[in-house]
Design a protein around this nucleic acid. Structure first.
Lengths: 193, 193, 193, 193
DNA sequence: AGTTAACCGAGACGGTACGTCGTGTCTTAGT
DNA sequence: ACTAAGACACGACGTACCGTCTCGGTTAACT
């Protein structure tokens, strides 16, 4: 979206509109897949015209990205690996948020821009905060992130939901991975597309 | 797909047609996301009419499932955790196969039938073979499967591909998980949709 | 539209569909201006999908042309100037037909193709039949056509309709124009765009 | 358009703005049909905001009317039928003016107000001046007007332009019509909508 | 050898959504 | 009050795709 650098000419955008749209999108996606949801429907539910929607985002995909960011909210100041994983797991357990995430990771398979965007706006900040807290290598933190999110998403894809047990299992693995004792051979962590 | 229960009257189906369609689908999906591929396109590339395609599969989703099965091929008789994970990782590394898989897991978020299908045709047989080989609990094997597939898919979604290092990292975690020494508290593994 | 040169492959077009669409268009245009009529509306009234409409005509303008042809019907074998003018006047007096005609002449101001089309499919055949009947010069017949149609359309634009008196007045002028005694200096009649 | 009834409070309107807009409209309409021209475009070409445009005219149609009046200019004091027809023909030959006229006559098919407006502001004054000059019946003068304008507009619609020959032909007919010798049966001329 | 029933290619069709454009209204800041 | 700039609601356009259908024509097995 746009940075606000002083008042621009013309009628200013209504402040609440984007929020209403994003909320409408998340609510709809909780109950149906993104492909089956029409932008007309999102617009109607948000009490807004479809053109307004296209004025703020270039395409349906970009709206999906914004919906994810809106659903995730700001990163918390993590205090422990378990807490950090817990925050992540909590988001992934929410059906709406999870479906947006699944949709986006699916789309990112063939969209480098989307990939970069997901990395820089979601994974990188998260990994950075995790690494600050725990004196661990970036590679481990990155692996932990991919493992937690990936495993939980895939399990949900297999069973339809995520149980407390699932979260605990994944937490165990992640904690072990991040512990100083973990002796993963120093391999290059994934970074470049 | 239909069961072939003895010879039926009328002109039999051309043997190679299904294979050509499935191959065309995999090739196309290697370069573009499934949502952006039209069945007309698949049909054209396979040198076939769209009608033929709908005579063999009921919907685009079912064609995706068949494409995945065709791409995965038969399960190998695994001899070790590392080898089993390697076989899985090799499939996931192939872009065409991976994209079909991503598409299907994404679709399964909203489709219980598809979920059941993926479990019974992909995960269950794999887990069974893994468990036979290694005297481990089913829960651990299932977790290992979800972890390997999920983590690798998610990493590919973040970076665009899967490196040898990625496979090795995931193998390490899976191996540790499957080892008899692994002392995960006995929690129920996910199973019901 | 297309010539039918033997059976072509694929499902043949439903015979009555074009007629239903054209009739629906004429009925709608009798009550509202062409610009205010949506193709969705035409399609709905014809009991047809919008896509069918676009399969048969490339644009809204082309549909308007077809509607005019359909509304005019075949040229009659005219027996006298007065009868020929009468046939023309009768068409122009029908609100639906007249409005299609007005719309098309208005559009043709900036569309050479449309102009050519109107000339070759409407004016030329009419003038030819008129000239065959009466042993007159083409220039006079063409002028008579433009005069009858143009004057009546413009009078309708001024008053909202066409009276018997209008038709009679115009007939008088046209008859005089076509009479052998008419001594118009031999000027080139309009032809090239 | 609004009447200017003495100085009103606040900032007065910039004098040249309306003229610039009307000129821009005429220039644009010379090259494209009015339906294909957007008000945004007119505003941009006039170096003006769309708001300004809507402050001065209520709708696109009203702007078209104003554009026509601006393009026609004041009625001349006609001295002869031939001169009067010449003045009319000259206006109609100018593409910009002609297209505005065509647009308005086309619109008037469905708009009684517009019809009344065209009659009272264009045809009636013209016919009055014609009748004053020549001692002829109103019916004849009115018919002459409709015949000249209608025929020329329709010929332009058929061929894309108006030649000297066209004007001469129409003048001949009009002159004959207005001559005292003309023995049209006394029929009521069109007047009521 | 002829019949039969399914196969196949081709394309029409209904329906839904997309993304764009245009009109007319509105809401700001600035003159 | 006027102007510039642009957001907004609404509605239509023309396109793309899905899944169904209806043709003509083909191909094997069964009578």
């Amino acid at each position: 979206m746009r940075d606000q650098e002083g008042p621009r000419p013309g009628r200013p955008r209504q402040a609440d509109v984007s929020g209403r749209i994003l909320t409408a999108a998340r609510e709809l996606i909780a109950a149906r897949s993104w492909e089956r949801i029409s932008l007309d429907e999102v617009a109607t539910r948000a009490g807004v015209a479809k053109t307004t929607l296209y004025r703020r985002w270039r395409s349906k995909d970009e709206l999906a990205v914004a919906t994810l960011e809106h659903a995730l909210g700001p990163l918390p100041a993590a205090t422990s690996v378990r807490a950090a994983v817990g925050w992540l797991a909590e988001r992934v357990r929410d059906p709406g948020t999870r479906h947006v995430l699944v949709t986006l990771t699916s789309l990112s398979a063939r969209d480098p821009d989307l990939r970069t965007m997901l990395r820089s706006r979601l994974r990188d900040p998260y990994v950075a905060s995790l690494r600050d807290e725990q004196a661990t290598r970036e590679a481990s933190a990155t692996l932990a992130f991919d493992l937690v999110v990936g495993t939980l998403l895939h399990r949900a894809a297999m069973t339809g939901g995520i149980t407390d047990g699932d979260v605990a299992d994944v937490s165990d693995v992640a904690e072990q991975l991040m512990s100083p004792a973990a002796d993963l051979p120093s391999r290059d962590a994934a970074g470049a597309p």
